[in-house]
Nucleic acid binder design. Structure first.
Lengths: 201, 201
DNA sequence: GGAACATCTGAATGATGGTTCACTTCTTAC
DNA sequence: GTAAGAAGTGAACCATCATTCAGATGTTCC
């Protein structure tokens, strides 16, 4: 019994793992999944390629962790607004606005989360998170329909449409160039989203 | 001068190329871009891997050709309807309906065109075609706005939203399982699309 | 038939990039 | 200080495919 991890050592390891995830996220936001090789990520974190495998069993596992962390933050923020107080239509408007602003503020990451080509494991995760966005939208819409603030509709379909619409509107400016005018884009997007759900203007 | 391609030989070569593209399209529709290796495609076409390079300079070039052919058909069909006769809102409804029905009828290909992970060259092509869908939608909407059949809006944004919404609604059932009820899905989708553009129900 | 040239073949080649591992460096416990 | 064992290193390894090319097979024309 000549060696045992001391609490400080455990913390140091956790911090190293954390640092790796943060750096990997930056790399992915900067250059996309395809260019984020193990070597590139390790370099960014200031460690050797082999050391990545101290923290993750494979590159995929790291990529999935990066995706989950970032995507979860967005789900949390969106959920906060959509499940908050107020008229369903107004919550929807604010949700879309918040989502869009955050995406525009962080092009690279938003593109990586929403659309950038990625390995299968990340693709699967993306699908899962899209379902979660959809579920959030669906319940606001359902509520609005139940309370007669929104017209009769299939909430699941509208929710899917919203998810796709928001993604597309944001991703195209994101992938090509910065939006010419973010405010215009956001107000245009919220308008479409509200119409999509049948909310009166 | 002991050998010269005879017209029949030229036709045979063109037919071989055509056959290759068709088979490659089937493979892609069945297993996706990632699994459509040169060997798999060549096997499907009944030729050797090396022979692919008689017709295309690279795998990417073949993939792009496959994508273009299939995507162009959809653009043509959609354009036909959207630029046809009638009320802009009604054309939009019919356009969405036709697009959706075709996609549902050919899950695999639709998924490959709209969303399946693909190499960069195909991704670029996909982007280009999305812009074309967008342009088609934008001009119907612009027309509708000009003629007061649709409320004032940013046609480009609505068009992008429509493209994304339609893709998302179709792709999720497509990637997971067959739509439970295609008619319900299509009518739900056309309704959202019309609301999206602000067309009265 | 056979000379000249093209297409077709498929195993060998090569590039890419994730993963491993023998070795070094650091930490703990005594 | 030193033994025991963990973390860190990075060059070697390996799997996957796209691509090539020397030889085999077809086609044209006289």
């Amino acid at each position: 019994m000549a060696y045992r991890k001391t609490p400080a050592e455990i913390r140091r390891l956790e911090a190293a793992r954390e640092h790796l995830v943060v750096c990997a996220t930056e790399v992915v936001a900067d250059v996309g999944w395809a260019q984020a090789s193990v070597t590139a990520v390790a370099d960014a974190a200031g460690i050797a390629a082999g050391s990545v495998y101290q923290h993750f069993s494979s590159k995929s596992a790291l990529a999935v962790e990066v995706f989950r962390r970032a995507a979860q933050r967005e789900v949390d923020v969106l959920g906060e607004v959509l499940e908050g107080d107020g008229d369903p239509a107004d919550r929807l408007r604010r949700g879309v606005e918040v989502f869009a602003r955050r995406a525009l503020e962080n092009h690279g990451l938003a593109y990586a989360l929403l659309a950038a080509p990625a390995e299968p494991a990340v693709g699967a995760e993306r699908l899962a998170f899209r379902r979660r966005y959809r579920a959030l939208f669906a319940s606001v819409i359902e509520e609005g329909v139940a309370g007669d603030q929104l017209p009769l509709q299939e909430p699941e379909i509208t929710a899917a449409a919203l998810t796709g619409a928001i993604g597309e509107v944001l991703v195209h400016p994101l992938s090509t160039s910065a939006a010419e005018d973010a405010d215009l884009l956001v107000s245009g997007l919220t308008s479409v989203a509200l119409r999509c759900a049948g909310a009166a203007p």
